[in-house]
Amino acid sequence: MVLPVYKASENIDTIREAADRIRKDCIRMSTRAGTGHLGPALSLAEILAVLYKGVMRYDAQNPKWPERDRFILSKGHGCLALYSMLSQAGFFERSLLDEFCSVYDTMLPGHPEIKLPGVEANTGSLGHGIALGMGMALAARIDGRDSRVFVVTGDGELQEGSNWEAAMAAAHHRLDNLIVIVDRNKLQLGDFTENISQLEPLADKWRSFGWGVRVVDGHNIEELLSTFKQVPFVCGKPSAVIASTIKGKGLAIAENKVEWHYKVLTPQQYEELKNEMSLEELCHE
């Protein structure tokens, strides 16, 4: 097998640094642009850092390397975090992050598009990622590749029925190369998920659909790493990881606050937090 340029690391500090970098980039990009889904990006930091630094096989110099693992951000509105992670992984220059929602036809719009190296599918409309991932997992099976497909969904997103169609079909087809990670931050656009349309018992739902299930702390790097290393949890079954997270994690005023689904800092707030959070200059000269 061809070795990817990128080699998975089990260095917890490296992964923690990447997650920290994601948070700072998300805050900076969204403040610069004056827009962005900050809360739903911040809950993703450790999940993405662990996947890209410790689990997935890919070659950022050759993004279409056929043997690579695939990643789909079904909750496309969390793209701030993905953009930061992809730049850290080497898919594009870090300076491109400054173009988030600020230049016409940007490679980094408010939801991810395949024109950006490293993005595997257009997402943004909720409830699409699992079926897309299922197609990629079937293609790997046809081609005899051991590629795995990682799909991150939101928790509110699971109110879309299309997810459960795909969940049923993926289990039927015994796609144990498909892994869904639910960013269970418990909040959706309008309120807590359980106040809008109850998701719990969520792990039971996945189990009853024929998936191997783990519930983990989505901000605990060691736990995420060891969990992802165990996939598939059950041979012949797709895997669901319900990652318990905090929306807005790492930005105190945003944590667990419904209004921070789609809210950003003002430049003034950014300046006030800059030293305390070791944030970069908002604008480079």
């Binding site: 595997e120 079926a131 197609g135 081609d143 169609e165 795909a166």
Partner: peptide, 24 residues
Amino acid sequence: RSFNVGIAEQTMIGVAAGLALSGK
């Protein structure tokens, strides 16, 4: 090379898209 996803047209389209993104 033949897959049936059940009575689930949205999934059928999504799965097809995933396959196409992998060169099928």
